[in-house]
Write a protein that binds this DNA or RNA. Structure first.
Lengths: 237, 237
DNA sequence: GCAAAAGTGTTATCTGTACACCCATGA
DNA sequence: TCATGGGTGTACAGATAACACTTTTGC
């Protein structure tokens, strides 16, 4: 107990309670036409061993963004991951044994990039979105809201580069969008739509693993003036 | 200091710090064609007397939703107000003298409903959105994000009933939307769009204060099957 | 040759937008 | 009667969605 520090604070806000504040990360990945979710067996009580989102507590001098980055880095070995805040979850009884306020994030990571070693060292595993185990506390609800946020983001700008390799085909990109929006999309119309955004650059190499004809690889091209075009809707929700 | 309680918690999460967690409410109103904002002179140190959002600390057994409701009720006398979480603001130095995590909300209230007495008793005042004073801490940024959230909501469903009287004209509704989106909207097109949603009910009474011809009053009609239609976009952001 | 994905083209329909135009009425 | 906002109609541009069709190549 840091009583000295506590005393200082009491002069200002001392009559108010303090709370544990955690971050919980919904980590999305994509492989084989399916949206994946990284889940962990909880390593400490309560609910030790049950499947859970990746989480941790906010420390004294870090923001929730920093805490989420720190936790993600520690457990997956990756940094500079795309992350976005989802919402704060604050029901007093959302954890049974202590009151913990949770600030939820979603993160998008490339499945092939990331360090399998570190992930497995924590007993973590990737689950298909449609086939996930029962989760502790309100983590199911957190995931639902995280997916809604991801759909919203993906509806306004391409989420290719965060979840796919540097080079990808339009069909792979469509597969990703079908996974995110949980419905099929017309191949021709999708192709025209994403190419019209003007942010994809075609390469001369072809991918021949998924079709006999072979499909051109594309990469995401960072254009400083491409912002405006991106505001057009890609998928109408 | 509730040391006994503290000790219990320490068995689980004791090594982690705790934080003050506040809610800050961006309270929107609408009058005379302008979006309004309810601001308070801060009643306690630090920054006492400076203009600020309405805020307060989350107590032991309440959620942030409940805290926001409690604070709003205490200061405006109103309950059952539409409120929505905006985001958590967590920069460690966002307040200069102590670390306070803030969960921001926006609230929509009808300016004519609310109890002027209670509001003024706290020295609070309504400011036009375009003409607000300098605010403490990061409250400017909170307001920016709150407006973005409001625009998003208003783009997908009518925000008439929360901000306007029970009976309103289409022109008044358009004025509200013009204030929210900070741009002019075509009168004819706006009328057709909102009426096509099928959620407005025309009354036989007319309002004659704003035009010579007089305009029909409408009210919001709660239809159980109107959900689907509401998902159509009202304003393209 | 055939199947299967890649890629292009065509068309009907819907939506957004600009704007013309009549209506009702208080000043 | 005329200015003003209320309210309706029209017409064009662009986006959406369904789907036909052609290309390429491994089997």
């Amino acid at each position: 107990m840091k009583l000295d520090n506590q005393t200082l604070l009491n002069e200002l806000y001392g009559e108010h309670p303090q709370h544990y504040v955690a971050v919980d990360c919904v980590i999305f990945g994509y492989r084989d036409g399916e949206l994946k979710l990284l889940l962990y067996p909880r390593s400490f009580e309560p609910a030790k061993g049950n499947w859970s989102l990746l989480g941790g507590f906010i420390q004294k001098d870090e923001s929730s963004d920093q805490a989420a980055e720190r936790i993600l880095k520690r457990t997956t070995g990756l940094d500079q991951i795309y992350m976005e805040q989802v919402a704060a979850f604050t029901q007093p009884d959302r954890e049974p044994s202590a009151r913990v306020i949770s600030i939820a994030y979603f993160a998008l990571i490339r499945l092939d990039d990331h360090d399998e070693e570190i992930v497995h060292q924590y007993g973590a595993d990737w689950f298909s979105f449609g086939d996930k185990p029962e989760l502790i506390f309100d983590h199911e609800e957190i995931i639902t809201q995280a997916l809604a946020k991801l759909q919203q983001k993906a509806g306004y700008q391409l989420v290719g580069p965060e979840l796919l390799p540097d080079l990808f085909t339009i069909t792979q990109l469509r597969g990703l969008y079908e996974a995110i929006f949980q419905r099929t999309l017309d191949p021709g119309n999708f192709r025209k739509k994403v190419l019209s955004l003007g942010v994809l650059k075609r390469h001369n190499k072809k991918d021949s693993t998924e079709s006999k004809k072979g499909a051109f690889y594309y990469s995401y091209e960072e254009k400083p003036d491409s912002q405006e075009k991106e505001l057009n809707r890609i998928i109408k929700i």
